[in-house]
């Protein structure tokens, strides 16, 4: 794959096929950790970090271990174990060697194991038959798209909390409706074709 192909794939997954607004991957943290822009950014950074590394690791596990042994059907089990181990390892590594980064995103790391965006990216890389470099770039771009979405949304939610609304809409429903309106805005990108 040439450099432009990779670049197009990356822009495509950030804007057109955004993980939150078109693929519905990683909705739980998107709705749960988007109360303040600062925490949203912390979560986003942690997700970028983990998804980029996990894309590389799961690619290697699939093509170097599972495929030669004919165990492709075990990919879901293998990937979730690799991701859980990776998250644990990143947490220990950061705590020991990069305490500043650990204090910025450490508390979000355990939540990421069950973030479906991570497993989703790993499975998509295999499904689309990307090579190693494309997989890592795709993972990085997908997570960047997630971060952009969650930070924009956190900014919106800060305003919603101040607004008056019927009692039944308070809390979760109005958050979903705001997300729906933002999704409409993102749907505007779907006219653009990168591929």
């Amino acid at each position: 794959m040439s450099f432009t192909d990779i670049l197009l794939i990356m822009f495509g997954v950030i804007l057109v096929e955004n993980f939150i607004f078109s693929k519905f991957l990683g909705i739980c943290p998107f709705l749960g950790v988007s109360e303040k822009p600062a925490t949203a950014l912390g979560m986003g950074m942690a997700v970028v970090f983990v998804i980029t590394l996990a894309s590389g690791a799961t690619w290697a596990v699939y093509y170097l271990l599972l495929e030669p042994l004919g165990l492709e059907y075990l990919r879901t089990v293998a990937f979730i174990l690799v991701i859980a181990a990776l998250v644990q390892f990143i947490e220990m590594f950061l705590r020991k060697f990069v305490p500043a980064l650990y204090s910025a995103m450490g508390i979000y790391l355990p939540l990421i194991t069950t973030n479906c965006a991570v497993l989703g990216t790993a499975l998509l890389n295999i499904q689309k038959g990307y090579n190693f470099i494309t997989s890592v770039c795709f993972g990085f771009a997908a997570a960047t798209g997630f971060t952009i979405a969650i930070v924009i949304f956190a900014g919106l939610r800060a305003r919603i909390d101040e607004a008056e609304m019927p009692r039944a809409f308070r809390g979760f429903p109005i958050t979903l409706i705001a997300a729906g309106l933002l999704a409409m805005a993102f749907a505007g990108f779907s006219g653009i074709s990168f591929a």
């Binding site: 409706i177 999704a183 749907a187």
Partner: peptide, 8 residues
């Protein structure tokens, strides 16, 4: 049917 409708 679009994603926005799911949220709404």
């Amino acid at each position: 049917i679009l994603p926005a409708g799911a949220f709404l």
